[in-house]
Design a protein around this nucleic acid. Structure first.
Lengths: 115, 115
DNA sequence: CAGCAGTATTCTTTTAAAAACATACTGAAA
DNA sequence: TTTCAGTATGTTTTTAAAAGAATACTGCTG
């Protein structure tokens, strides 16, 4: 009764829709950075991610949501930009809320794991 | 109040140990197939997975568990084989139990998702 | 109407993961 | 002492995903 390794339960949460994965932690981070920086370009830089991929993720989200999460502004002063819609703001909150509850539940299950 | 998309929460559960991922659903399936077929070779075939990879997964599990989950028999009649240890049997049960509880909890959280 | 900065989109290259291939090794049993 | 089927392990090939590069488009502003 001495050398006991520590094990803990990890949980990954995401939200699906008929067509497939809709919203996971990666897209949430992207939403947060778009909110913070005001554009997909700068959000991508912040995350050291290619603009191309960030743009694709935004497309996916917008198409799979009932109403778009990100509003894109084309051209104009500063070339345009992107900002969260009401639905986008709510999505962040809802996701974190759900994720938090599930992770807390998982943590409780961690007691006494042995292998 | 009509076109409402259906969203549901998906959850992936696995168990970590200091060195990294220890046990997820993939390794559990492998354990089950080893139990069923009596060898890594046949388990791998069953799962249409390369023997090499199956063998590596077994190594990982055994090293990260406090005591091995799979006992390997080398040479002899039939070339040898592999079988689950007591710890291996228990690992399957524990994993499914934990996973089931968490997924049930997640299901309850699914109500009223809207995006 | 030229400049600008971000969005939109296609094409190419790189990289990393998985699969496939090849070959020893092991030990009971005939 | 050869056979056999499974374990053990290194090398090569394939494949899919990510990254990168290149280019067109948009519409305000000076």
């Amino acid at each position: 009764m001495s050398e006991n390794k520590k094990y803990n339960i990890e949980v990954r949460v995401w939200i699906e829709e008929a067509e497939g994965a809709f919203l996971g932690i990666g897209k949430i981070w992207l939403l947060e950075n778009i909110k913070k920086t005001g554009s997909i370009t700068n959000a991508a830089k912040e995350m050291k991610m290619a603009y191309r991929q960030a743009w694709q993720l935004v497309e996916e989200m917008n198409q799979r949501a009932e109403s778009p999460l990100v509003e894109k502004l084309l051209g104009g002063k500063g070339g345009g930009g992107a900002k969260l819609t009401e639905a986008g703001e709510r999505a962040i909150e809802v996701f974190y809320e759900v994720e938090k509850r599930i992770k807390e539940f998982a943590l409780k299950e961690t007691q006494n794991l042995k292998f």
